[in-house]
Amino acid sequence: MNLHVKGTAVDPRSRCAHYNTEVDIIAIKFHCCQEYYACYYCHQDHADHPPTKWPQEKWNQQGILCGNCQHELTIEEYMEVRGCPECHHTFNERCSLHHPLYFNI
Score class of each variant (00 low, 15 high):
13 R>K: 10
90 T>S: 12
25 I>E: 01
97 L>H: 11
77 E>G: 02
93 E>F: 00
27 A>I: 09
99 H>R: 13
55 P>D: 06
93 E>L: 02
9 A>R: 07
12 P>C: 01
81 V>A: 05
90 T>Y: 05
3 L>D: 08
77 E>H: 02
82 R>F: 11
35 E>Y: 03
51 P>C: 07
15 R>E: 06
82 R>L: 13
92 N>F: 01
43 H>M: 08
50 P>G: 07
40 Y>D: 15
24 D>W: 01
59 W>C: 07
47 A>C: 02
19 Y>P: 02
58 K>R: 15
39 C>M: 04
44 Q>R: 14
82 R>D: 15
102 Y>K: 08
74 T>F: 13
58 K>G: 01
93 E>C: 00
43 H>Y: 11
79 M>Y: 05
45 D>F: 05
101 L>Q: 12
61 Q>N: 10
29 K>T: 08
38 A>L: 03
86 E>I: 03
2 N>A: 01
93 E>H: 02
78 Y>G: 13
65 L>F: 02
62 Q>D: 12
58 K>Q: 15
60 N>R: 11
48 D>L: 09
84 C>G: 09
85 P>H: 03
18 H>E: 05
14 S>I: 00
54 W>Y: 10
33 C>S: 10
104 N>A: 05
2 N>C: 00
49 H>W: 04
9 A>V: 05
24 D>M: 04
51 P>L: 12
35 E>V: 11
2 N>E: 12
59 W>Q: 01
25 I>K: 00
34 Q>Y: 05
4 H>D: 11
99 H>L: 12
